[in-house]
Simulated scan of single mutants.
Amino acid sequence: MIKKTRLLIGFVVMVVSHLSMAEISPSASALKKTLMGIEQYQAKFHQKVTDAAGNVVQEATGILTLARPNQLRWETHSPNESLLIADGSAVWYIDPFAEQVTILDQANAVENNPVILLTSNDDSTWEKFTVQTAMGESNSYIIEPVEPDGQVHRLIVTFKDNKLVFLSTTDAQEQISELAFSEIKMNTPVAPTLFSAEFDDNYIVDDQR
C-alpha cells in the first residue's frame, strides 16, 4: 500500500508545478503560450499503465481538476476510490479504504519532474527541461529533464483546439502511464473548496513535510 501510494503521488503531483524560460526554444515558447491559456481545467480521464514489456498493469478512471497557481484535485473512481489534492504548498493523498492520509511538501514532491508545467509560470525552472515538438504532430510536445535523475524521464502532452486531450509519462523503470481526457471544461471557474483536504478524524495521518 505504501509503495502504491508513493507511485500515485509521484505521478499525479508532478502535474502541478512550474515552467521556466531560460533560452527558450520555439517549441517551448509555443507550449508555454498554449499553457498560459489554461487558467482552470477539468476533465474525466482514463488511465492505462504498461510495464517495460508492454503489459497493462493498471487501469483507472476519474476526474482531474487544475487551477492556477499550482492547484490540483485528482479523484480516482475505479478500480478504487482515492483523492489527491495539491493546494499550492502541500500534497494530500487520501485513501478512504485504508482510512489514511499522507501529506508531502509540494515543492519537494515535484522536484525535477517534467510534468510540473501545467499550472505555473516560474521562469527559473524552464532551464531544467528540454522541449521539442513530437515528429509529425505540431500539437504534441515531448518534455525531458536536462538531468534525468528524477523518477519521470519523459512527458508527452497533446492538445486539440488548445485543450489538453492526452498526457503520457515514462518513468525510470520504463513504465508508461497514459491518460486520455474527455468531457473537458476549460477556464470555467471551479470552487476553491475543491482544493481543500477534508477527512474524518479517525483517519491515520502520515505527515512527511
Rank of each mutant, 00 (worst) to 15 (best):
I38V: 15
M186W: 02
D105P: 00
A109V: 02
L118C: 07
H18G: 10
P79T: 11
N187A: 12
E178R: 09
W74A: 00
T125I: 08
M36I: 07
N162S: 10
F45Y: 13
L35F: 14
P69F: 09
I176D: 01
V146D: 06
N139V: 08
Y41F: 15
A107S: 12
W92K: 02
S168Q: 15
F199Q: 02
L155C: 06
I103E: 02
I38E: 01
E23Y: 11
E39V: 08
E137D: 15
D161I: 02
P148E: 14
Y41S: 03
E81G: 03
V16T: 11
Q151W: 00
N162E: 15
M36K: 10
S20D: 11
L104C: 03
P114I: 12
T193P: 01
K48T: 13
V12F: 04
A109K: 00
T5G: 01
E183I: 10
E198S: 09
L84F: 06
P96H: 08
K32R: 15
V152Y: 00
R6I: 09
I85R: 10
W74E: 02
V146L: 11
N187M: 05
S20R: 05
Q151I: 01
T76M: 15
Q100Y: 12
V15M: 12
P79N: 12
I184V: 10
E198L: 05
A53Y: 13
K44N: 13
L104N: 02
R6F: 11
M36N: 13
L66E: 11
I143L: 12
F181E: 05
E59M: 13
M21T: 15
L64K: 04
R6Q: 12
E23W: 05
V110S: 05
D171R: 00
R6E: 15
M14V: 09
F195G: 00
W92D: 00
L167Y: 00
V91N: 03
N139T: 06
V49E: 03
A90D: 12
E39F: 10
Q132T: 09
S78H: 10
R68A: 15
L117R: 11
V110N: 05
H153S: 06
Q175E: 13
R68Y: 13
L72S: 04
L19I: 09
T188E: 14
I204W: 01
F11T: 10
F195R: 07
I63H: 03
D171F: 00
L66M: 14
A67S: 14
S20W: 00
A191V: 08
K128R: 11
K185G: 07
S140M: 06
V190N: 02
V157L: 14
I156T: 09
T125C: 07
L8D: 04
L35N: 10
K163Y: 09
I184L: 03
W74K: 01
E178L: 02
V165W: 10
D95W: 10
G54P: 09
F11H: 05
D161H: 10
V12W: 03
A98V: 00
N187E: 05
S177M: 01
T119L: 09
V131Y: 06
Q40H: 05
V115P: 04
Q175H: 05
D171G: 07
Q100S: 12
A43Q: 06
G150R: 03
H153T: 04
K48W: 00
W92S: 00
